[in-house]
Write a protein that binds this DNA or RNA. Structure first.
Length: 563
RNA sequence: GCGCUUGUAGCUCAGCUGGAUAGAGCAACGGACUACGAAUCCGUAGGUCGGGAGUUCGAAUCUCUCCAAGCGCGCCA
């Protein structure tokens, strides 16, 4: 909000410098504006003069002088401009500009922080994509939180987002699932004769078996299945089991407030003939060959370290063939961008999927689709690591976590660190609703502001109906300025978060904002005998609350008015 | 052995895409409520940015090389 006009000022100054002959013509690097770590160096600084020193063959400080002398600050954005150190240009923003920024925040209201940068173009975000072989666990939770936040960030920057969930409803894992349920139907326990190799041992398998025998009906998001109740009908068991688990996962996602626009079933790629089509197309393009009774794709031609089997000697396809078919389908549905959010344990699929898409020769860009990988979550309970094993049935489910910790805290914890760093989830700490928990820290800030508004209302002040233009000039204390500076940074933080798929930047921003509010609160009284100061501060806090709500909304976290 | 990711204060982590004196929260110690929510604030202490070399005006950030951890490296998904 301040940064952009500043960049424009510098760019215009460069242009004027060229016109007057003081600077050499040519292309300039993009103007970068940074925030100095030392506040004495101004509100913003620019290093363009040092970057140009070589090209202009002039000392950076002289270039900086030329730029400064050509700056036309007609809107009185700047208090002063200085050259410092080796050639930094330090900008000191006028109080007037910070104060006026508040008026702009009020004007933009709920849309402040958002932008139209994506121009309404279509982007698909695929995430979670858990197979229906068990409830969602804590790892899926991280994927759900990151995927949903990134989707919201993309929406906030003007993209038309489709949230998509892909699941494997065929194949070996599902066969195992069906066999496990069947064994339970027949009263076979894990380890006993007749228990399937690699069977799923969790309690939920037993539950599905008894529901099946009781001929229950299951309604999942995309399926309506009535149990046959016949323990010998493996196909009926498979369909019932998948639907049952889909229903459970739907409920988990709903509890987490994560919704999907499209569910794609792997089986549909076969039934629509897409898998066969892809295999044929790859063969026709000369990228496949037969060896050892199998059909191979020459992925080494596209950067892989070895070729991969497409069709096994038993005639079935390996998982990555439907994956390619699925992504071709995404492309043909018109998504110029696709973001796949998944666990980093699947990172080896990236090369294969992209290789397959390149081999199809459809003109799909090499870097398409984009991938966003998150590292593993380790769960600590009682100071010990909880081992996650789906087959043994011992793991923390997402549902347990939400029930114990609360949806907002779980979401916040999952996104507060950059996705590619491992996450230690300390259950005991997260359950403890203490101030160590950063989500309480910032929700408290919002609740505290709302509480001030209530008090103000009791004294006849309506924080929502203050004429900002009349009072903002009273806002000039260091604490007030600190808040104003942070507020106007929101659009930049949102666009950077979205561009890099880094929701944690926004959580960090919110923690900073909460901190500067709490500092202000402890230092200054909002409601006082001085009505002009009171009105000005209420006006400032009204904008602050707005920014909390806008930013928390982009993260899918609530902004409670009391706690 | 190869690939991806990570390594920053005692612990958990930031560090705005190469900028100026590396930051925050916990934990430790010392302070602040007879007024708007003390779920808060202020102060003190705490560092070889894993080690080494290189690139340049300038490196936690880029390159190379070691060391350590996690995850991959199936005719599993």
């Amino acid at each position: 909000m301040i940064r952009k006009p500043l960049i424009l000022l510098v760019e215009k100054a460069l242009g004027k410098g060229v016109n007057s002959g003081a600077l050499l013509a040519g292309t300039f690097p993009p103007v970068m504006i940074g925030v100095p770590s030392n506040p004495e160096h101004g509100d913003y600084s620019c290093n363009i003069a040092m970057q140009l020193a070589k090209k202009e063959s002039a000392p950076p400080r002289r270039i900086a002088e030329i730029i400064i002398s050509n700056i036309d600050d007609s809107d009185y954005l700047l208090e002063k401009v200085e050259i410092a150190g080796p050639g930094f240009i330090n900008f000191y923003i006028s109080q007037d500009a910070w104060q006026k920024a508040l008026l702009e925040i009020e004007r933009q209201g709920g849309s402040f922080g958002r932008s139209g940068a994506g121009e309404g173009k279509k982007v698909q975000v695929e995430f979670v994509s858990a197979n229906p072989t068990g409830p969602l666990h804590i790892g899926h939770g991280r994927g759900a939180a990151i995927g949903d936040s990134v989707s919201r960030l993309l929406e906030a920057t003007g993209w038309d987002v489709t949230r998509e969930f892909y699941y494997n409803d065929a194949g070996q894992q599902i066969a195992n699932l069906a066999l496990s349920v069947q064994a339970r139907c027949k009263g076979v326990e894990p380890g006993e004769p007749g228990w399937p190799v690699d069977g799923y041992q969790g309690e939920y398998i037993k539950d599905i078996a008894s529901s099946y025998l009781a001929k229950e009906v299951v309604d999942a998001s995309d399926q309506h299945i009535a149990a046959a109740g016949d323990p010998d009908d493996l196909e009926a068991i498979r369909r019932f089991s998948v639907a049952s688990l889909r229903r459970e996962q739907d409920a988990d996602l709903k509890a987490f407030d994560v919704r999907f626009d499209v569910f794609t079933l792997e089986s549909s790629l076969y039934s629509r003939g897409l898998v066969e089509y892809v295999v044929r197309a790859l063969a026709e393009n000369g990228h496949s060959y037969e060896a050892d009774g199998a059909l191979w794709l020459r992925t080494t031609a596209f950067g892989d370290d070895k070729d991969r089997v497409m069709r096994k000697s038993d005639g079935s396809y390996t998982y990555f063939v439907p994956d390619i078919a699925y992504h071709l389908d995404k492309w043909e549905r018109g998504f110029i961008r696709v973001v796949n959010e998944q666990g980093s344990d699947h990172h080896s699929t990236i090369t294969r999927v992209r290789a397959g898409l390149q081999a199809l020769g459809k003109g799909i860009p090499e870097g398409w689709p984009e991938y966003l990988l998150h590292q593993m979550v380790t769960v600590m309970r009682g100071g010990e690591e909880v081992k996650i094993s789906k087959r043994a049935g011992s793991y923390v489910t997402l549902r347990d976590l939400i029930d114990e910790v609360g949806r907002d805290a779980v979401r916040f914890f999952f996104i507060m660190r950059k996705p590619d760093a491992q996450l230690v989830f300390d259950l005991d700490l997260a359950k403890e609703q203490s101030p160590e928990n950063p989500v309480y820290y910032l929700q408290y800030a919002h609740a505290r502001i709302c509480s001030i508004f209530e008090n103000a209302a009791g004294k006849g002040f309506d924080a929502g109906r203050i004429q900002g233009a009349d009072v903002v000039s009273s806002l000039e204390s260091p604490e007030e300025l600190e808040i104003m500076k942070l507020l106007s940074a929101l659009p930049h933080v949102v666009s950077e978060s979205a561009a890099n798929f880094e929701p944690h930047r926004l959580t960090g921003y919110l923690t900073d904002l909460a901190g500067s509010f709490h500092r202000f609160y402890n230092k200054s009284r909002v409601i006082s005998d001085n009505s002009r100061t009171t009105l000005a501060r209420l006006y400032l806090l009204e904008r602050t609350a707005q920014v909390f709500r806008n930013a928390l909304d982009i993260l899918g976290i609530s902004a409670p008015e009391r706690m």
